[in-house]
């Protein structure tokens, strides 16, 4: 994954309908692939006009997400994150 973009999920905790799981907020991962654009569910949920956004399939290491509690550091979690929840991050050495 070393040639992929490395990004951090924003650590925001807003109320309301969002599709970014709390356990991934503030965590960094690699862009596994780019999807979309897809309309923003945070607007669709309220019947509002929704902006189309890129959707990133992010890959996180278990260690990044759970720290020392990760039983198998090489295992991974993939999740789709809308682009407005992502910010650039400095890449560590390639996993």
């Amino acid at each position: 994954m070393s040639d992929r973009q490395y990004m951090r999920v924003r650590a925001d905790m807003p109320p309301g309908h969002v599709r970014t799981p709390a356990y991934l907020r503030g965590k960094c991962g690699w862009v596994e692939r780019t999807l979309g654009p897809f309309p923003n569910p945070e607007a669709l949920a309220y019947g509002l006009q929704a902006q189309a956004l890129p959707l990133m399939r992010m890959r996180f290491s278990m260690t990044e997400v759970w720290g020392a509690a990760a039983a198998n550091p090489n295992d991974t979690i993939d999740a789709e994150i809308y682009s407005h929840w992502l910010e650039p991050a400095e890449a560590p050495h390639a996993p």
Binding site: R19, P21, L55, A71, N72, N74, T76, E80
Partner: peptide
């Protein structure tokens, strides 16, 4: 968080040499 324990409850035990990739269906 603990995919291997969940898989074990289903009777699936994987060696450490197999990487488990969990996919969270968060969006589209």
């Amino acid at each position: 968080k603990e995919p291997r324990k969940v898989l074990a409850e289903f009777g699936v035990t994987l060696p450490d040499t197999t990487t488990v990739r969990v996919h969270d269906s968060t969006a589209d």
